[in-house]
């Protein structure tokens, strides 16, 4: 009986750990998404922003979303670098290059659902791209 209770407790713990780590993944991506969304909403100036969704031709549901932002903004660059560094621990794959204090590139990949975030900061120039595949 004790062995059974132990097994149940272990299973519940595993479920709790997985759900917490899953929520951490969601919050990591949400953190970066929120940074971008707030910047877009507050800043009208010289930015280049693309948000492209691709839908399933049969169901019309969104299958893929591609977001690209290019802007000259030092503060946003610093915020995004900090966000990428904070969230890289939850990524399933990554590549980070810190060539110099003013040149930073990073790619973070989460596999389920498949999300890919890329950041390139060169001086005050920021280039951010995100691909989200829904339903994978």
């Amino acid at each position: 009986m004790n062995a059974v209770k132990l097994r149940i407790a272990a299973a519940l713990t595993a479920i709790l750990v997985l759900s917490v780590s899953g929520s951490q993944r969601v919050s990591a991506q949400e953190h970066i998404d929120n940074l971008i969304s707030r910047f877009i909403d507050s800043n009208g100036g010289t930015i280049s922003y693309r948000s492209v969704v691709k839908r399933n031709p049969s169901t019309h549901e969104i299958e893929k979303r591609v977001v690209e932002l290019s802007v000259s903004n030092k503060e946003l660059g610093r915020q995004l670098i900090a966000a990428f560094e904070a969230e890289k621990g939850t990524a399933d794959g990554m590549e980070i290059n810190r060539v110099s204090p003013s040149y930073y590139t990073a790619t973070l990949v989460w596999s389920s659902p498949r999300r890919i975030y890329e950041l390139s900061v060169s001086g005050s120039w920021v280039s951010f791209s995100a691909v989200t595949n829904y339903g994978q």
């Binding site: 877009i40 930015i47 693309r50 948000s51 492209v52 839908r55 031709p57 019309h60 969104i62």
Partner: peptide, 8 residues
């Protein structure tokens, strides 16, 4: 297919 897309 691309309904909902936009650019700024």
């Amino acid at each position: 297919l691309y309904d909902g897309s936009y650019v700024i």
